[in-house]
Simulated scan of single mutants.
Amino acid sequence: MQNSTRIKAKLSSKNQLTIPKVIRDSLGLSNQDEVIFQIDNGTVALKKGNDFWNEVKQQDKVYGDLSTGQLDWNSDMGEEVIFD
């Protein structure tokens, strides 16, 4: 069975809600992160929005660290020509 925690928060007079620190920490949220709200049958789920670098980190977990200076592009790379 999954652990469950209930946290209560109150809407401000401007209908704004501060995400409690426990939840921010649990989701790894920081300043300017996107948050996704998903509504299913009257229940709201909250998750951190994916940004590019978050996606890269997730890919690293699945496929390993792909950052290397030794990529072999063979002839597929082509030639870069810079015009002034």
Rank of each mutant, 00 (worst) to 15 (best):
Arg6Cys: 07
Ser26Cys: 08
Asn50Ala: 05
Gln70Gly: 13
Asp51Ser: 05
Gly28Leu: 08
Gln32Val: 10
Thr43Tyr: 13
Ala45Thr: 15
Trp73His: 06
Leu11Trp: 12
Ile36Asp: 05
Ser30Lys: 15
Leu66Asp: 12
Val44Met: 14
Glu34Ala: 02
Asp60Glu: 14
Gln70Ile: 08
Asn31Ile: 11
Val56Met: 07
Gln32Leu: 12
Lys61Gln: 05
Ser4Glu: 12
Val22Thr: 15
Gly64Tyr: 03
Asp51Leu: 00
Arg24Thr: 11
Val56Ala: 11
Ile82Cys: 02
Asp72His: 01
Lys8Val: 11
Ile19Cys: 06
Asn31Tyr: 08
Asp60Pro: 02
Val35Gly: 04
Val22Cys: 11
Ser30Asn: 10
Leu46Ser: 02
Ser30Ala: 15
Val81Cys: 05
Leu29Ala: 06
Ser4Val: 14
Gly49Lys: 06
Asp72Ile: 02
Pro20Arg: 14
Asn15Thr: 09
Lys61Asp: 06
Lys14Ser: 07
Tyr63Cys: 03
Leu17Ser: 09
Arg24His: 05
Gln32Arg: 12
Thr43Arg: 12
Phe83His: 02
Phe37His: 01
Thr5Ser: 11
Thr18Arg: 14
Ile39Ala: 10
Lys8Phe: 03
Asp51Phe: 06
Ser12Phe: 03
Ala45Lys: 15
Phe52Trp: 01
Val35His: 05
Ser12Tyr: 06
Asn31Phe: 03
Lys48Ser: 09
Val44Leu: 13
Asn50Ser: 14
Gly42Arg: 08
Asp60Thr: 07
Lys61Ile: 01
Ile39Cys: 10
Thr43Asp: 06
Asp72Val: 00
Ser67Leu: 15
Leu11Lys: 11
Glu80Arg: 11
Val81Arg: 08
Ser12Leu: 11
Asp76Asn: 13
Lys10Met: 09
Phe37Ala: 04
Val44Phe: 14
Val62Asn: 01
Gly78Thr: 03
Ser12Gln: 07
Phe52Ile: 00
Val35Cys: 00
Tyr63Ala: 02
Asn41Pro: 05
Met77His: 11
Glu79Cys: 03
Asp40Leu: 15
Phe83Gln: 04
Val62Met: 09
Asn3Gln: 10
Ile23Val: 15
Phe83Val: 10
Lys48Trp: 05
Val62Phe: 03
Met77Cys: 10
Asn15Pro: 00
Glu55Asp: 00
Asn3Tyr: 09
Gly49Pro: 06
Ile7Phe: 11
Asn15Val: 07
Asn54Gly: 12
Ile23Trp: 04
Ser75Lys: 05
Gly42Tyr: 07
Arg6Trp: 11
Val62Leu: 07
Asp84Gln: 10
Phe37Lys: 07
Lys10Phe: 13
Lys47Pro: 03
Thr5Gln: 13
Glu80Trp: 07
Asp72Thr: 09
Ser26Ile: 00
Lys47Asp: 09
Leu66Met: 08
Lys21His: 15
Trp53Lys: 04
Ser26Thr: 08
Ile82Trp: 00
Tyr63Trp: 09
Leu27Cys: 01
Thr5Ile: 14
Val81Phe: 07
Lys10Trp: 03
